[in-house]
Design a protein around this nucleic acid. Structure first.
Length: 237
DNA sequence: CGCCAGGTTGTTG
DNA sequence: CAACAACATGGC
């Protein structure tokens, strides 16, 4: 077993399955469990992609509120999102913050679906992974983490997401320096783990859980389930 | 009240 | 290429 395997198993034991990505059911705020066991519908895929954009540097609760408004206003589809103005969209998603920027990003993503995917989000399945990733990255407003979130959770592609929590946790564990390039960290983790989409999905959810509960910006190490593995705990704790 | 939240882009030295 | 600013709401 490698270091990343060991951390995964310990986090899974401590927190259980997270069943990420969280999505909205019927306009409510429940989380759909077990949904990683089936293929996402087109609308779920769209919701995941919009959520990935909206959650950029933003609390998920704020994003969830925006997604509910989007759904209840009948805007959770490509055609409607293409038809409404950027200003209307910004108003709908305002709870997510950076609403002007994000409305522009979503508009660009919708144009991408229309022109590159012929209006059908499922057509991304026709591209191989490097093509799909580069295509997403070519859209203004979609960076590496956002693209990888879409690829893994909406399109079931094997990419490991490197976000601020991933960096922070593995930096404190002593596995990375923390200032490596995004893709260097991604390759290192992907190389270390079995290439298993379900593990990538679950692992990312576990890292978010762990970062929120214990490995916060100001860490709470006393009850941390992986303190025995942690350089930070050794030195600071 | 201040700080922070699952980033990305544009500008500057 | 690194460092920094801009983008903005809501929860604690």
């Amino acid at each position: 077993m490698t270091q990343y395997d060991i951390v995964y198993k310990k986090l899974l034991f401590a927190y259980g399955h997270q069943n990420w990505w969280p999505i909205i059911i019927n306009g409510g705020s429940e989380y759909l469990s077990e949904f990683n066991k089936r293929r996402r519908t087109s609308m779920e895929r769209l919701e995941i992609c919009l959520g990935a954009i909206l959650t950029q540097n933003t609390n998920w609760k704020n994003v969830e509120a925006s997604l509910i408004v989007l759904k209840e206003s009948g805007s959770m589809n490509v055609q409607q999102l293409a038809d409404i103005s950027r200003q209307e969209l910004a108003y709908i998603i305002r709870s997510s913050g950076y609403f002007n920027q994000k409305a522009k990003k979503i508009k660009n993503f919708i144009k991408f679906i229309q022109y590159r995917l012929s209006g059908d989000i499922d057509n991304l399945d026709r591209l191989d992974l490097p093509e799909a990733r580069n295509a997403l990255l070519s859209v203004w407003g979609i960076g590496r983490e956002t693209a990888d979130s879409m690829l893994l959770y909406a399109f079931d592609r094997p990419v490991f997401i490197v976000d601020a929590y991933t960096r922070r946790i593995f930096y404190r564990l002593g596995y990375i320096d923390g200032d490596e390039e995004y893709d260097d960290i991604r390759y290192q983790i992907e190389y270390d783990l079995p290439q298993d989409i379900l593990i990538y999905k679950e692992y990312h959810g576990l890292l978010v859980k762990h970062a929120k509960l214990f490995c916060r910006k100001k860490p709470v190490c006393e009850e941390c389930p992986i303190q025995g593995l942690c350089l930070f705990y050794e030195s600071e704790g």
